[in-house]
Design a protein around this nucleic acid. Structure first.
Lengths: 346, 346
DNA sequence: TCACGTTCCGAAAACGGTTTTGGAAACCGG
DNA sequence: CCGGTTTCCAAAACCGTTTTCGGAACGTGA
C-alpha cells in the first residue's frame, strides 16, 4: 500500500518546513499566497489527509461527540424506534457542524486495563462532548460524568452538572391535550398505561395523567393505571387487565405508540372494537402510527428535533456558553381515527 | 479541573521510567511483579486513563470501526427501521470485541481542508475497518475505499475489493418461499411491489419474483410489477394502481413491510379486504409486523444477525484473515394472517 | 545610514503514549 | 573468581501534528 503521506513529506517535497505546511493548510495568514498555493496543490495531488490523532494530541479537541445509548435489559433501548429517530437528529445537527459521532459500544476495554466508566471512556477518546440516552441518572457512573467539566446533554433523562443539561418533550402538555380531547369526546372513564415510571418521561406522563383527571373533575382510580414499560407486550398485558375490569375504561391513553399496538391487540382479543367501544391515544407518533389500523390518535414528539436540540446545546456549551439549560420541546396532539365518542351505553 | 494524569506522572510518582509504566500497564513480561503491582495500584488510585490518540499514533490501530450510514435523498435511510436493527447487531458484535463505532456524520470537514471522501475520512480517523450501509457501490468514492486495503464490509450492498466483502440476506429464497406459499393457497395472479431496484436487495427480490413465476408455471405480466422504494407511500401508490387493473392480482408480495403498510392503506381505500379479497406478504419482519392488523405474513430477515455477521467478517479481516467473503444469511417465511386463499370468484 | 516594522518562514518544543536498545545487577555453572 | 545468562529497568527515539519563538529579508520614514 502507498505509504501514509505526512506533513513532513509535504514539507520535504515543497521545500519548506513542516511548520509552514501546517500553517498554510490551516489558513494562517503568515504565509505568502504563492507558497500556500504551491503547498495546497501538492497536498491535493498527494491526497494528503491529516491524522486526527496527532492533531488531537496537541489541540486537545477531537471534533467527535460521544454517544451513549444504553441498552436496557430485555429489550435494548436502542431498538426502540424513538431513539433511532433521535439519533438521526443528532447526526444531522452535529454533522452540519463538523462533528462525527462516536457510538460507545466496547464492553471490555480494548486492552485489559483500558476505559471503563462513562467518564473514562470519554477521556480516553477525548470527545468534545457527550449525549446520553437511556442511562440511569442516579447511577454513580453517570453522576461522575456529569460532575466533570465535559459538556453533556441527556435526552429524556434529567441530568444536572456544571456543563450538563438535557432535552425533553413537553410530556405534561401532551398528556393534558390527550385527556382533554378524550374528555371533549365525552369520555369519563379514562385509563392510563404508563411507561417505565422510573424514567423521566414515564413519570411525567403519569403525573400529568393524574393532574388532568383532577383538572377535568374526574376521580382518580387506582385500578385505572396499568404499569407498562413502553414496549408492545406490556401494553397488551395492561390493556387485557383493564378491559377485564368490572367497569372497564372507555378510553386509554398510553405512554407510547408501541404500547397501543399491544392495547389494540388486547382489544381485538377481547372483542372490543377501536374506536367504537374503546378509544385509545398513544404517544410518540412513530413513523408507522398514521398507517396503522385504525390510524392512531397520538401526541407527536419531535424526535429528530430532540436530537437536534441536544446537538445544539452541546455545541453551544463546547463553544463556551454556560451550562446547557434544559430545553423542552413542544408536542402536538395528532387526532386520527383511534378516538371517538364513547359507546352510547358507556 | 484536575489535570490529566499522564503516564509520565505515574512514572514520576512511582519512581520508575515511563517505559516501565507502559510495559507494566500493558502486561509485558519484563517487569517484576512487585513493580507492576505498585504501578497498577497507583494507576487505579489516580484513575489513570490512557489517551487513545497518543497510543493510536504509534500503534496505528484505533480499535474503532467506522460506520457509513448514508441518507438517501427524501427519506434518510437511517430512518428505515431495517438499518436501525442492523446497527444494533453491529454494535453488539463489535462491542463485545472491544471496538467502538464511529458514525461518520460530518459534512464539511472540521477545519477547511480536512476529510472528504470515504477513504479520507477513514484515514483521518485511523479506523481499523468500516461498514457501509446505503452507499452506492458504483460511486467513485465507494470504489476508492474498497480498492484500498482497509477492511470493509457492506450490508445489503455488493462490494468487491482486496479486503472487502458484504453480508446480505438470502433474498431469492425468501421471495421464492413467499411465492410458493401464495401458490399453495391457490393464488395465480400474484403481483410484486418492488423495492428500489437500483439496490441489491431490490433487484434480487424482483428477479426472484420473476423466477418464481416461471417455476410455478405462472406467466409474467408487466403490469403486475409496480415499482416502489421500500417506503410506505410508494407501496400505497403501487397498490392503488394494481388494484385498479382490469384483472387485479389476488395477492401481492412486497419487497418491504413498510410498503405493505401502504398496500393495506390502498386496499382499505379501495374497499378490498385483507386477506379476504387480497393476500399480501411483506419482507423484513420489522418489529411491528406481528402487531399490525392483520398480523403480517412476511419473510423475516435476521437484521441483527446481518449486523453481527458484518462485525465478525470485519474483525476476521482485521486480524489477518483473507478478504471477508460474502455471507448470505438465511431468511424465514413467517406465516401470519395477511394471507389466505383467494376469493372464490378469483 | 539607521532604527524599526512587516512579512514570511525555519527550528524546536510540545502533546502522551509505545517500543527498541542497552546496561546494571543478580544469578549461574564451572 | 569469571564469562555468560537472565531479569529488570532507564533512556531515547518515534508517531504526526500544532504552535511558539525568533530570525532573515525587505521596505520605510527620518
Amino acid at each position: 500500500m502507498r505509504e501514509r503521506v505526512t506533513i513532513r513529506e509535504l514539507a520535504r517535497l515543497s521545500g519548506v518546513s513542516v511548520g509552514t505546511v501546517s500553517r498554510a493548510l490551516n489558513g494562517y495568514s503568515d504565509v505568502s499566497p504563492e507558497t500556500r498555493e504551491r503547498i495546497m496543490q501538492l497536498a491535493r495531488a498527494l491526497e494528503y489527509t491529516p491524522t486526527a490523532a496527532a492533531r488531537m494530541l496537541v489541540t486537545q479537541r477531537s471534533h467527535v461527540i460521544g454517544v451513549f445509548l444504553e441498552t436496557g435489559e430485555g429489550h435494548p433501548d436502542l431498538q426502540h424506534p424513538f431513539f433511532h429517530e433521535v439519533l438521526v437528529g443528532i447526526k444531522h445537527c452535529l454533522g452540519e457542524r463538523g462533528f462525527d459521532l462516536l457510538l460507545f459500544a466496547s464492553e471490555q476495554p480494548g486492552n485489559g486495563f483500558g476505559p471503563h466508566s462513562y467518564e473514562k471512556r470519554c477521556r480516553h477518546h477525548n470527545v468534545d462532548g457527550a449525549v446520553l440516552m437511556g442511562v440511569d441518572p442516579e447511577d454513580e457512573e453517570t453522576r461522575r460524568l456529569v460532575r466533570s467539566t465535559l459538556p453533556c446533554v441527556g435526552v429524556d433523562v434529567a441530568l444536572h452538572g456544571p456543563s450538563t443539561g438535557y432535552v425533553i418533550s413537553d410530556n405534561r402538555t401532551g398528556i393534558l391535550a390527550a385527556m382533554r380531547h378524550l374528555h371533549e369526546l365525552g369520555h369519563r372513564r379514562i385509563a392510563h398505561v404508563t411507561g417505565l415510571v422510573e424514567t423521566r418521561p414515564g413519570a411525567e406522563r403519569l403525573r400529568a395523567y393524574r393532574d388532568a383527571l383532577r383538572e377535568l373533575g374526574l376521580g382518580y382510580r387506582d385500578e385505572y393505571v396499568a404499569y407498562g414499560d413502553f414496549y408492545v407486550e406490556s401494553g397488551r398485558a395492561a390493556a387485557a387487565r383493564l378491559l377485564a375490569l368490572d367497569e372497564p375504561p372507555t378510553a386509554i391513553v398510553a405512554a407510547s405508540d408501541l404500547m397501543v399496538l399491544g392495547v389494540l391487540r388486547a382489544a381485538a382479543e377481547a372483542g372490543v372494537s377501536v374506536p367504537g367501544d374503546l378509544s385509545v391515544v398513544g404517544f410518540d407518533d412513530i413513523q408507522l402510527a398514521g398507517h396503522l389500523h385504525p390510524p392512531l390518535t397520538t401526541v407527536r414528539q419531535d424526535k429528530a428535533g430532540l436530537g437536534r436540540a441536544a446537538g445544539e446545546a452541546l455545541v453551544a456549551c463546547i463553544e463556551g456558553a454556560d451550562a446547557p439549560a434544559v430545553t423542552t420541546l413542544p408536542v402536538e396532539l395528532i387526532v386520527r381515527e383511534s378516538t371517538a365518542p364513547p359507546p352510547a351505553g358507556g
